[in-house]
Design a protein around this nucleic acid. Structure first.
Lengths: 243, 243
DNA sequence: GCGACTTTGTTCCTGCGTTCACAAGCGGCT
DNA sequence: AGCCGCTTGTGAACGCAGGAACAAAGTCGC
């Protein structure tokens, strides 16, 4: 894999003659995108790799390499045109397409996500909500009525849902996942603390809050200094942790 | 950074002889831990690396290497004793210590997290809630009254909060972060879509939901097949994406 | 119009992480 | 008691990602 084209390529038609992009770079590009849109709102029209890297919290060389996956849209001696850069990153990330999302499991978390403004603001409208609880069916949450989980395949196919968000309890997650896949959903964001089994063509990203806390816990302990209350005693950690 | 000690080191006192653990392995260990506790509940007392790896969605060699960071607690020809393994992973991750968490920003998401059973269930009790909204101050959420953000330093120090969770809007995040640090918090879980600037001794983990969606969007497009509605046409993606 | 400065794009290199593959070790079976 | 088969633990190789450094390139000032 990693065909590694010879540096440049023709922009042939309108879609995707891009190179192989490392997974890690994709995540960073999304971050750059956010920083850039924020910059544009402040009237910034041009930005250097150094400044953008600082704002995104990465090395400037890494940033330039990431942007090289998008194409060469900088001007030497000047920097990058913010608007143009946003445009091309969005193209690479597939944000020019229509993506509608479905939220399954309207508990506390599902409720919050159904109302999360960051989704529609970023071009991901929530177009379907599902739950098992009969009392919730038909009740509008964030302006959208809740449907029964049994109708997931039909509704997802009809509304062309491309991303499913699972916020159910653990025991229901796999079943819901299967229903989403049956409905043609190929991308799943899973908040349930379980590893979902899916066909190869489906992409799952898991957000496990407890795991995040446990990773923090690990670092807390490694960082030395007992329960970090009070003034900082020493920033140097005695035990090596590779990054 | 990355001092990379020669394999083993002495922690001197009670917390024992663990090696330098790669960052990526820490995250996976937390996943193994979850799978294992689930297994134990089902009465499983012994498990092989192959089975555990399958359940956790990783390669069995990777799993064995990860477990080797914890120590050699398997039995050749048999597998791992589940209870013993859980015990040692918990020790490595620092879960034997007391970790209390504070949630800042009691909007939809903060509300959900304050009530999230996964936190206390995993040994992370929520002991403080903060918001800026005067109408919320004093109101109990999940049985805990909300305090004003101005009292963050004092309350966090007093209640020995070790982990701060930021669910505020973007513009408030950095200020809240500074207050948490002032209160002695060394670990922060950040849901606000912004890169926080913190001193070196503070560890931040960011959960950016929009970024997750954008990564999924990227894969959606790469996977070929237009808006994936209807039956699967082809699982092979025409463009190389390095993993 | 030309020189110097700035910043990009890329190449090389180093180091980590993952995987393969095998030897060591342990239990069970005969 | 000894052998056989199974599984762990680790040594070595491979591939990827990140960082430093440099050459190309374009702009701004004079």
């Amino acid at each position: 894999m990693t065909v590694h084209e010879h540096g440049r390529y023709s922009t042939g038609l309108e879609d995707l003659p891009y190179r192989s992009v490392p997974e890690a770079a994709v995540g960073r590009l999304a971050v750059y995108l956010r920083v850039l849109t924020s910059m544009i709102e402040q009237g910034v029209t041009t930005i250097s790799s150094e400044v953008l890297a600082g704002a995104a919290g990465v090395n400037s060389a890494t940033l330039r390499k990431d942007l090289s996956y998008v194409g060469s849209y900088g001007t030497r001696g000047v920097g990058y045109d913010t608007a143009r850069l946003v445009e091309h990153i969005e193209r690479l990330l597939g944000l020019t397409r229509h993506h509608s999302i479905a939220v399954v499991g309207i508990g506390n978390l599902g409720h919050a996500l159904a109302n999360y403004p960051g989704f529609p603001d970023r071009g991901f409208p929530v177009t379907a909500l599902f739950d098992l609880d009969e009392d919730l069916i038909g009740v509008p949450v964030g302006g959208l009525p809740v449907d029964h989980v049994d109708s997931i395949p039909a509704v997802c196919a009809e509304r062309e849902v491309t991303i499913g968000v699972i916020c159910t309890p653990v025991h229901a997650a796999q079943g819901v996942c299967d229903l989403l896949v049956a409905g043609g959903v190929r991308c799943i964001l899973n908040f349930a603390p379980v590893v979902l089994q899916v066909p190869d063509e489906v992409e799952v990203r898991r957000v496990d809050l407890a795991v995040e806390l446990q990773i923090l816990s690990f670092h807390q302990v490694r960082r030395g200094s007992g329960n970090g209350v009070g003034p900082v005693v020493e920033p140097i950690n005695p035990i090596a942790v590779s990054r």
